[in-house]
Amino acid sequence: MFTFLKRLLLFLFIPLLVLLITFTYKRYDTDRKMGAFAKKYSILIMGDSHMARIDPKLLHDKTKNLASPGEHYFYTYSKLKTIVDNRESKIKTIVIGIGPHNFSPIYQKLYDLNTSEGRGSLENYLYFINFSEAKGYSFWNFITNPAFFKGIFTTPVFGGWYASNNSNPKLSIVIGSLRMHYNGKDADGSSSQIFYLEEIIKLCNEKGIKLIGLSTPVHPEYKKRMPKKYLELNSSLSKIYSTKMIYLNYFSYKLSNIFFADGDHLNILGSKVITSKVDSILISTKIIK
């Protein structure tokens, strides 16, 4: 029996050691990179794929885009906290994406560790997570999730600017984007997104960081077909968030077909238009001098 256990432990020791070393090194490396961002940049662009279309090169030279596709606010919050908790952080402004789609059912799934979307998020953002701050999950829930092990070997998704050369999306593509976000008219929204957006606001207030909310334009056909509930939400977003931050709502901003890569994402042309609008706001509010 003891020989069996001894050999079994020896057999398991090697992969466990590999896991531990990999996890520790990659965690250290992620923190180091985030620390470098904290020291180097003063403006961060954060959020999901909509914000990944904001070109930092067209803004202030100390701007970094850390937005990544399908990023739940929990992971945005985790990234942000790692950066702003750095003692030498020079971050003064955060531009964060807040559009009606951010509160759609797909974002609830992106936080749910029991869904494939949630497990995908865990894999991609594992090294940013502050486990004690995950609402509804314990450390145990994370380490017993199969995605945790895959995440150890997955390169963490820092995010960044994404330029798309696609244009004039077909109607089927627009409908595809809608289906992905709303998955049925009456589907429930994402309460976890609301919770972590509030946490981001709180964190920025604590650290004296100016927060700018941005809703990027969507394709007219997308808007036309959106569930009523989310169109109403779009109208109320300005009311809710303009008291808590500078809120720029370009959701209904009219752009023609050539500015869109698909139903809800700007292409490189659209990116220039909206980035320049953000730039002028940053200048007018004296964030950029």
Binding site: F11, I14, P15, S116, R119, P146, A147, F149, K150
Partner: peptide, 13 residues
């Protein structure tokens, strides 16, 4: 065995 374990962890989920 390690090869099998790695493939299990790679495809699990």
């Amino acid at each position: 065995y390690y090869l099998i374990i790695i493939s299990i962890f790679y495809f699990v989920g």
